[in-house]
Amino acid sequence: MSLSSADVKKVARLARLKVSDEEVERFKGQLGNILGHMSDLAALDTAKVEPTAHALGLVNVMRADVAQVLSPEARAAIFKNAPEREGPYVKVPKVIE
């Protein structure tokens, strides 16, 4: 399995990762090597096999759709972790022109 530099750059873009040219070259070889190992799965006949959805067969777990009310202290503890904030908001660059 071999990946091109363009493949690696495309995947990095999809993953929202900035990678240097040097990283692209390194990841190209390493990811190709790992994916090469995984080609062993191609030999496995899975035509009649269902994919695993949950290892122990647990199905959807539901709860009531009710908002949890946080104490002012709990809210403050969450906002303290934000890199930029303004009032009770996390500040980000403009999303919509």
Partner: peptide
Amino acid sequence: DAYYLKAQKARTLIK
């Protein structure tokens, strides 16, 4: 299909 789905099917066989 070739990677993720195939792996989830193979997982069923391992289980």
